[in-house]
Design a protein around this nucleic acid. Structure first.
Lengths: 209, 209
DNA sequence: ATAAAAACTAAACATTTGTTTGATTTATTC
DNA sequence: GAATAAATCAAACAAATGTTTAGTTTTTAT
């Protein structure tokens, strides 16, 4: 299925609405109105609401994949530096596609659409396998500890980032950051999260020196 | 509003359905059928679907509050031991009410019902303030570092636990734990999460010795 | 320029939705 | 035990839902 500009436009609108109102809470009429297209066009383009959701996931999944094959082979960078790069890349991706991440989170809880569940599984395994590659390299070089629970580590990363995005308002209020703009806050968040997660990963991965 | 056994029964059924199908994805007919009561009874008892959701939150919020006032005053326990107790208590609560946590997570993303949003804010602030009490004690006693980002720390805790619950299947497959039962897995999870989070909190809170 | 295909539209379709009604049964009160 | 209140029920209600239809306009290909 080749996606035109119109396809992508509808997908983007749907993404925003699904994130804020949920999949079931968003009607095709909502999407059509917000996207400024005729009601029938959504079914015409995607077949059904369900298929629209699946297409959305199929599209976004590509953007979400961590691509660090070349990074893995690079011998001039230390294993932990690679981990740091991976963390930064992950944070950037999520901050860039916050709406999609919210949808993914809800769909993870409510395993209703099996196609979607499969996609999420795919992302999770991609992350974990990527991480496994990095960890094993560090272990071979005797820099990283043995017996690392890779997926637990990944879940600390994804969970922390997710919670910080979901709890923006409370965080900003708790830390008196109400004044700064959303984009400036996101910029700060990137740094805060990066530093925080790198510190955690360092202590859990590297041998004490 | 005094809740009878019938109220609580409907709430429990609704909790399970909301968690697996989402609020909008669950109809009053679904709830009535699963709870084995007449369709009209749900509106009769709670007024509306929305009010049912709000009652559910009002009920669960009480169970979720971390109660460590007495713990805080206890002078025979070290600050970090108190943190450990708080972590364990949190994990127990979440594992005990997984369905509710899933609902909370989705409602956090889709801030549709303002009453619910207010309740979630309340929980978050309760956690953060509790933690602040613990951290400040440790800082006064020169055991904990200065400049702790309390809510970031809390979000690492809540996020890690949430992700481990949401990704059970993937985690079990990735670690070849398909054989063991759900309850046995939850038991293991409790220990794994506890150890993991305590290690993280230790390095982020305490001065290196 | 014309025929065929694709894009688009308004209207209609059958279900499903949350909620209410009005009647009936059960429980409580005096 | 009669009167009142509460609980329960089947049925009905209007509104909203996803999808389809049948007709129109626009684009493409020859």
């Amino acid at each position: 299925m080749v996606l035109t500009d119109k396809h992508n436009h509808i997908i983007e609108i749907a993404e925003e609405l699904f994130a804020t109102k949920g999949y079931s809470g968003t009607s095709i009429r909502d999407i059509a109105k917000a996207a400024n297209v005729n009601l029938a066009m959504v079914s015409y383009y995607f077949g059904s609401k369900e298929k629209l959701m699946e297409t959305l996931f199929k599209e976004r999944i590509l953007l979400m994949q961590l691509k660090i094959e070349t990074l893995l082979k690079n011998e001039t960078i230390s294993p932990f530096q690679k981990v740091e790069i991976m963390i930064d890349e992950y944070i950037s991706k999520v901050l860039d596609k916050q709406a999609f991440y919210k949808i993914m989170l809800c769909e993870m809880a409510q395993r209703k659409n099996m196609v979607v569940v499969k996609f999420i599984r795919e992302i999770k395994l991609n992350y974990a396998n990527m991480m496994r590659g990095l960890v094993e390299e560090g272990q071979r070089k005797k820099i990283f500890k043995k017996h690392i629970d890779i997926m637990l580590l990944m879940n600390t990363m994804t969970g922390t980032v997710t919670q910080m995005i979901m709890n923006k308002e409370v965080y900003r209020e708790f830390n008196s950051l109400k004044k700064i703009s959303e984009t400036e806050y996101d910029q700060r968040l990137k740094k805060i999260l990066g530093d925080h997660l790198k510190k955690i990963f360092k202590t859990l991965l590297e041998y004490e020196s």
